[in-house]
Amino acid sequence: MTHPPYLSPAYRSTLLRAPSRPPLLLKADPDTIELTSPVFGHHEVAEHEADLTRQHSGEPLGERITVSGRILDAAGRPVRNTLVEIWQTNAAGRYAHPVDRHPAPLDPNFTGAGRCLTDDDGRYRFVTIKPGAYPWRNHHNAWRPAHIHFSVFGTAFTQRLVTQMYFPGDPLFPFDPIFQSVPDPAARERLIAAFDIDATEPEWALGYRFDVTLGRTPMEDS
């Protein structure tokens, strides 16, 4: 089982929000609209939206990084021209969101949201800064490992994926019920980016690689 179960009691917010019934398994026919997905145009997403370090007048504080990779379907084929959106905290572990009350400083030069379209090889690339860990109130002394939220579209609406990318070697992994909600340890590893010296730019930015593989569509199953 790749995906976490809806009910994952250690993550308290699931208790009243997890559906109690398993989803109804539907047979797909060619008219099933869930087998199609939005097609995105290059005029809809500006190129500069992929650089989160250049959205304000100054440079954000923190460790500059690039995050790049490929969006693939279940057969390993690239998903082309698809929308990839990310959001994250600043280097201090604070979201530019009014609900975030963590007493860490906001960075006037960092919002922490970006998006881009994949190219013909399914590749995407963002320039950003490394996000920070932050406390939350799930349980006593609860801390989220540093992560970047990813939102990805496939070629079918059923493949729609929102996930979180983590950084290698984070000491908070064993204590985080969201990361641990994925039951299979091998599947959890797929949430962790790889440091990539080849993607690292000398005198400029560390490179991390994160490939995303979407689920099978009903047509691929049949």
Binding site: T2, H3, P4, Y11, S13, A74, H149, S151, L161, V162, T163, Q164, I178, F179, S181, V182, A186, A187, R188, R190, L191, D211, V212, T213, L214, G215, R216
Partner: peptide, 9 residues
């Protein structure tokens, strides 16, 4: 190998 889902938060 499918990438697991995580909450939107």
């Amino acid at each position: 190998m499918t990438t697991p889902s995580q909450t939107v938060g």
